[in-house]
Design a protein around this nucleic acid. Structure first.
Lengths: 158, 158
DNA sequence: CCATATAAACCCATGCTATCCCATATGAGA
DNA sequence: TCTCATATGGGATAGCATGGGTTTATATGG
């Protein structure tokens, strides 16, 4: 499972270490690395996952009729825009130049766990976007069996 | 699996390198190359795949009665219009002149992964056609288990 | 059946980039 | 304090895309 937000730095060759925990979670015998694709919800990040996740997507897409509009669009968005990034012997990946540009990377990259997948951000961008994460989750906590009315006590974490 | 969009250039002899990943994915012991055919949905590209994909299509067509209208039409569109392009020792294929003309190729060729197959475009044409791919996929994401209403956050990828 | 033109296949060379490999720093845990 | 895993830096190597010369195949005409 992909957990936590981890920030690592891009080196002069465009490489970045994928957090060790994430490497474990992404392990697959047929491909030693991760697959990334531009966020399908239009967010300023790339989504990423192990090969296994991709195989599941492939199965879901294969269930759609050949040449149907939905299959066509999904294949283009998913397979057409995806990249395979394989780990080097130290667990790093080389980030393609155009990906770095689209992310606006300036040195630090954030890996954000999402359970079955994770996200790749420019660390700065992530920090701005993530200011109010806990509070944004509150209206949806009932899915976890929570009370409908949660009151925020005074003096939370800084 | 055919993943990513890769642009390579056509040389003076009409050759183009098939991306190494695609060569791997297309590997078949009986034919070292790819098969291409004009897009069956009428798009401005050729579809392409390894020999294996072609064998599957052949099986599907064989299931139809000989001399039936549907078998006849499919055989013509598929086998009649298809070309075998074999790899040279450096992993390139020679693009037939008429294919280049139909694609309107002006030097750069785009290979677009589609999972089980891939597409071959004039790079320019592809770029124009692919501007809003992610957003066009959104209405269909529920096939992958996604929410029906996806909100695009502010400030996406460039 | 041979001669010729055209195009396809083969071969080698080059530059660029990704990958490999080794070295070092840092921090966690025994 | 010592050991080990991780993150990071940098030199060496291998793979890939590309250009171009040479040879082989194929089709067409005599």
């Amino acid at each position: 499972m992909f957990l936590a937000t981890i920030v690592n730095s891009l080196d002069a060759k465009g490489r970045v270490s994928v957090p060790a925990d994430f490497r474990m979670a992404a392990t697959h015998e047929d491909f030693n690395g991760v697959i990334i694709w531009p966020a399908l919800n239009g967010g300023a990040f790339f989504e990423a996952a192990g090969y296994n996740y991709m195989l599941e997507m492939q199965n879901a897409i294969r269930a759609l009729p050949l040449y149907s509009k939905e299959r066509d669009k999904l294949q283009n968005a998913f397979f057409g825009e995806a990249r395979k990034l394989s780990f080097d012997s130290n667990g790093r990946v080389t980030m393609p130049k155009d990906v770095l540009e689209r992310l606006g990377v300036d040195g630090e990259i954030a890996f954000v766990g999402q359970g079955d997948s994770f996200q790749i951000w420019n660390a700065q961008t992530r920090q701005s976007a993530a200011q109010n994460i806990q509070f944004e989750a509150v209206p949806h906590l009932h899915h976890l069996g929570a009370n409908q009315n949660i009151k925020t006590p005074k003096g939370g974490l800084s």
